[in-house]
Nucleic acid binder design. Structure first.
Lengths: 350, 350
DNA sequence: CAAATATATGAAATCGGTTTCAATAATTGC
DNA sequence: GCAATTATTGAAACCGATTTCATATATTTG
């Protein structure tokens, strides 16, 4: 446990001032090239490492970006994070990550920690419970950029990054209708969240545009977990008449629902067609393969981080627009194909 | 963008010294209760927030833990991280996360970043390519605890957290043999990594103990991805005679292999029994359901972090042991049950 | 009641870079 | 050859909290 080498040690060694050492190590133009050379050699040889705290303290920035996510153990969020880490790493930023576990209380606590850690920017995907954005006002009023992605909320100072959930749901529902479904159930999550509210809207509009009735009873609000899918299946099995199509707001829930229906001797897609959302790995494994919406997680993460970097480096008012929409697509697989003849029609880009 | 409130501002406001403010905010016993009360009220009212850099600079610690992981978008690693975040958060630590993407070069770069960020401790699961632990010597020689988990390597100063891969593989292989398999293929990853080397050993020992021949040709080394599973299936289909059992070192690869075999009209488990590793969600979705080893990701994350906290807070020599073994278990499902009569035998704890 | 102890507070140094302002040395222009 | 400009370096203040050591007051003890 030897003590750290500081720029003062290097300065003493080379008989220069700490000022020059600091400048040289930051590649400041006002330092002679040869001096720079000598200094960087000495630094390497002496095993110097910069003290980021001293630096941060003085410059008032941290090169650290905060991330608050509902759950870390979700395929979608882990691919988003993978994308974020990649871009952040390349740009020399650290990522501090915390999870709200879908509770408002933890989301607030995490936001405060991030604020005290003085992150340069914040990325957030909201919890189920969140109603207002008060706990992010600290950031906004200090000019720290906050970016919402996927589970977003309107804020005039903040950029949001989403896919067009309404349109995706509209396409999915329309596809079910084209397959001959007339009595479709929609399983979705907490309607406080845009993703679920928008998908419900898309579902509803598709029905209306195709002259089908919309009924509240055909909408099941759930936690969207594996268990929730099983429960939803039970609920569906008690419906009379049975629906002939189900549009579920994520694949985890869609798959467990599908499995439970199969166990009850329902034929998929003949009796009931099923569509999920996310294009998780399980959607390609379940039998029949699940029709779903391809959701660009990694790309969303990369875009979110790039937009944040723009706001950090560029001028503050450099924000191109308040909401960025990423492309998503309907991936048609067996679970929704009632008419086999349609099987050729592969992927519909939205 | 108002300027920050500091303890000096509070001191001036209350006509006290910064020393007292600092102590009061840290709940130091030598400050009068009433004074503390006044100070914390003033702090709240003035919107004070502690400057962690100043604090870190002075105390020479960061309350930050570094994590280097091969990939963020893996079900196993995301559950590990979820566990770590939970414990870290409760203990008031931040987690800085980066991914090596299975390359040594990025692992080194990330380790250096962590070192410069002066993390209080480091958690690592090694990349495929890593051969030596030189890039962690910085930490060790400064007394910064480094903990390896899952993909570990021997280091006399560092704790490792693993499951007993050898035993798990032994049990899995023995189970295949009990089901009547006599010609078993093992698909696994880079043997530099303990997890794969140990599983190979367990595979080999089980064969030997049951008087079955071990042949190098029955071991397929792959990247363990979805594509690798499909490729491995092709390789297997060209074998003559076909094997009657396959033990794969992860579920992703096992499932894609199983799917490819089914597509080639191989009956699972009748023609070939299949066992995976990890107990990912897909193992419960694929048909037939996949026999696999349940791998306690979340728990491993929690334990890793708790051990690290012990080393950070307790005495440096408080390390209970160099290697911590977590329990894993064989979960028997249809994909390996050649004799249906055995179906009752549910889970074998290791 | 004096001495000893406990309680409460503050002055000043410190952590290690960064930055402003000033100074000196080297170079250029006319 | 001298003024003007440019290149290079340094002294000292600063960022904001923590901590050591000292001091003043309050309380207890013999």
């Amino acid at each position: 446990m030897e003590k750290d080498i500081t720029i003062y040690d290097i300065a003493r060694e080379l008989d220069l001032s700490p000022t020059t050492i600091s400048r040289a190590l930051n590649d400041h133009p006002a330092v002679n090239k040869k001096t720079k050379q000598r200094i960087s050699e000495a630094a390497a040889q002496m095993g110097y490492r910069s003290n980021l705290f001293a630096s941060n303290l003085r410059r008032q920035r941290t090169n650290t970006i905060g991330l608050i996510v509902p759950r870390l153990d979700s395929p979608f969020h882990s691919s988003v994070i993978a994308g974020m880490e990649k871009v952040a790493n390349e740009a020399g930023y650290n990522l501090i990550i915390s999870q709200s576990l879908e509770t408002l209380q933890k989301e607030i606590a995490n936001a405060n920690t991030m604020f005290n850690s003085r992150v340069d920017g914040l990325l957030v995907s909201l919890s189920f419970e969140t109603e207002t954005l008060e706990h992010f006002e600290n950031f906004v009023s200090k000019g720290i950029p906050v970016i919402f992605y996927d589970r977003v909320a309107e804020h005039k100072e903040c950029t949001s990054i989403v896919i067009d959930n309404l349109q995706a749901a509209y396409k999915a529902t329309s596809h079910l209708i084209e397959q001959g479904c007339t009595n479709i159930v929609h399983i979705t999550g907490n309607l406080k969240r845009n993703v679920y509210a928008d998908r419900l809207k898309g579902f509803k509009y598709a029905l209306i545009d195709h002259n089908l009735p919309f009924s509240e009873e055909n909408v099941i609000i759930s936690k969207m977990t594996e268990e929730a899918g099983t429960l939803a299946a039970q609920q569906i099995l008690e419906m009379d008449p049975l629906p002939d199509g189900i549009f579920v707001s994520n694949d985890t829930c869609a798959v467990s629902c599908l499995k439970a229906l199969k166990k009850a001797n329902i034929s998929i897609p003949r009796d009931i067609a099923v569509i999920g959302f996310n294009n998780d790995a399980i959607s390609r494994v379940v039998e029949p393969n699940l029709t779903t919406i391809n959701y660009p997680g990694q790309e969303m993460g990369e875009v979110a981080l790039r937009v944040l970097l723009l706001q950090l480096n560029g001028s503050r008012d450099n924000v191109p627009s308040n909401t960025i929409n990423l492309r998503s697509e309907l991936i048609i697989r067996e679970s929704s194909l009632k008419s086999k003849s349609n099987a050729k029609k592969k992927a519909v880009h939205l």
